[in-house]
């Protein structure tokens, strides 16, 4: 029992990321409003980015910008354990900017749908399509 509790406490970050991802997934599938679906898509995306960034964290390490890069004491040996893993940061930095670009496309599609059907609710759009 204490093992289970210590495991739950030690990895509390992961549980919350998974909860956020479930919230986003539920919103994408079950929400009726198109803008709410887009909000859900973004929550899902940020939850995954959060997970990726969190694997780069190291105990007792500092941010991935080298100290004394230039200057009098520039030539010293760099140890990998002193700096946080920069690789997930690079991957996720571009993912965020591409995310806002796809958000723009999604909102443009939502505006086109609204101009055609005069509503953002999914069931009302489907009912209008069936009538035609």
């Amino acid at each position: 029992m204490t093992d289970l509790i210590s495991m739950v406490v030690a990895k509390y970050n992961y549980w919350i990321y998974i909860t956020l991802m479930m919230i986003g997934l539920y919103a994408i599938i079950a929400k009726n409003n198109l803008v709410k679906k887009i909000v859900g898509m973004n929550i899902f995306q940020t939850a995954i980015i959060l997970f990726y960034v969190s694997i780069g964290v190291k105990k007792g390490a500092t941010i991935p910008i080298l100290e004394h890069g230039h200057g009098p004491d520039a030539h010293h040996v760099v140890h990998a354990v002193d700096y946080i893993n920069p690789l997930p940061h690079v991957l996720m930095l571009t993912a965020i900017v591409v995310g806002v670009a796809t958000l723009g496309v999604a909102l443009a599609l939502a505006i086109r749908v609204y101009n055609n059907y005069n509503t953002l609710e999914e069931d009302e759009i489907l009912a209008q399509i069936r009538e035609k």
Binding site: V35, V39, N42, T46, I49, V53, S54, G56, V57, A61, T62, I63, P64, I65, I84, P88, H89, M92, L93, I96, V97, G99, V100, L103, G104, L107, A110, I111
Partner: peptide, 25 residues
């Protein structure tokens, strides 16, 4: 978490531009 570059991007992109895009839409 120490991911300063990612935090900077999110502050300018996520909290800045995407909120404006949502409000505009």
């Amino acid at each position: 978490m120490g991911a300063v570059d990612v935090a900077f991007t999110e502050a300018s992109v996520g909290a800045g531009v995407s909120t404006v895009l949502f409000v505009a839409a």
